[in-house]
Nucleic acid binder design. Structure first.
Lengths: 228, 228
DNA sequence: TAGCTAACTATACGGCGTACAGGCTACGGT
DNA sequence: ACCGTAGCCTGTACGCCGTATAGTTAGCTA
């Protein structure tokens, strides 16, 4: 009943779902989500594209598994000794950190479909923090949903969302953008021209994320049932 | 020099970029962004797919134009007589309204690329409101970026983002989701089970959007330089 | 030895974006 | 009356994509 190792094909260990997902993550991180194709994965793994269909029902299932694998990286430990705002904040920081590490996930999250186990785990912890803070189940649901959306939005947002771009490409982009700003009619876009520098630079991404999270948390706290 | 009407092909008026975009919007609204393909558009317009390449440099340019066309629908009028919070709020409501009308835009917004004219128009007005409220150019830039991301996130967020789904499909989804929730282990996911109803229903989308915007605005106001 | 099953391979289909080359129509100049 | 030219479109082909279907192989069990 137990299968032993089966290593007959010369240079290759047998395919596993985990190996496929691992290579897929590498591909997505390095070349973007568009590079993750069945055929490409097959080639990378030294296998016929159709071989992947033994391990996954189709590309959708593969992508779902990919999201789940990433979501599992979120640190769900909460310190019950600190105020709920801090508990929620560190939760959000962990989520944002995971999304920043793999920005392509945001595109996958907004495909419909039932939530995966990883999803549910994160959601459970968020709801728990909010419920203990005094929110009703309805309020907690709304806040958690909104917080998750905001996290995705932060990562998808402008500060050069362009991941995996080489520094030179990024500099080129920035240069072309600044060129565009410079030849804008000054009487129509005074505010944009005035803000040309902050608009076209994206230094201090950490500050950007900190600001976004602070703003979210400030909003949540302003609506909290009993602030403490 | 001036070309007059040229209607030689029997049943068809000559193609224009606007006509292509119009059909593309209809397609995206009715069947989702995936239905917008060069070949499909050509078929719909009674024309060879390659004909579209006369009017657009490629599919990317077509999609960019599509976004621009939609963004132009945003109502940029602001009432200078009301507090800046209200000015910004109605601006955001207009933006969210546009995104809700064409949810597929959110997917297009997060593709990199230089901002279009429509983009700049919206950004200019947002920055203006924020600057007059006392934010520095840097702050205003950050807030505007974040607000735009949040608007996109709201629309992309959970409440059944599944657009264009028939009511029956939507009910099926909801039913399967509730089934999943019911057979969850109660000891591992108490908070989720407790919130099963608000999680699986998506009535009152207006309330969802109002909440999201209120939360954003509360956060912004909490960080405003001189609160009023 | 025969048969079963897990894990692949081979082939093929239809759809996608688009490069490239060719053609047709209406107009302006001569 | 002719023709060049510009604008608009067609035809064909290439190389990707996901995947349905069917065939092959290795190792285990009986």
């Amino acid at each position: 009943m137990a299968r032993t190792i089966q290593q007959e094909v010369p240079g290759r260990s047998p395919l596993t779902a985990a190996a496929v997902l691992g290579r897929a993550v590498e591909l997505a991180d390095a070349e973007g989500l568009d590079a993750v194709t069945i055929r490409r994965l097959g080639k990378e793994l030294g296998v016929t594209p159709m071989a992947l269909y033994w391990h996954f029902r189709g590309k959708d299932a593969l992508l779902d598994a990919l999201v789940d694998r990433a979501v599992a990286d979120v640190d769900l430990a909460v310190d019950l000794a600190v105020p709920w705002q801090q508990q929620f904040g560190s939760l959000m920081r962990s989520i944002v950190g995971m999304l920043r590490a793999h920005p392509w996930i945001t595109a996958l999250l907004s495909r419909g479909g039932l939530p995966s186990e990883g999803h549910l785990g994160v959601l459970e912890v968020m709801l728990d923090v909010l419920r203990r803070a005094g929110f009703t189940p309805e309020q907690a649901t709304t806040v958690a949903r909104h917080a998750l959306s905001t996290a995705a939005a932060l990562v998808g947002g402008e500060p050069g969302y362009a991941p995996r771009l080489s520094p030179e490409e990024l500099a080129d982009r920035q240069h072309r953008f600044r060129g565009l700003l410079e030849k804008l009619p000054g009487d129509r876009y005074p505010r944009i021209i005035e803000a040309a520098v902050p608009l076209s630079t994206c230094d201090d991404p950490d500050g950007y994320y900190a600001f976004g999270l602070d703003l979210l948390l400030a909003g949540i706290e302003a609506m909290a049932p009993r602030a403490r």
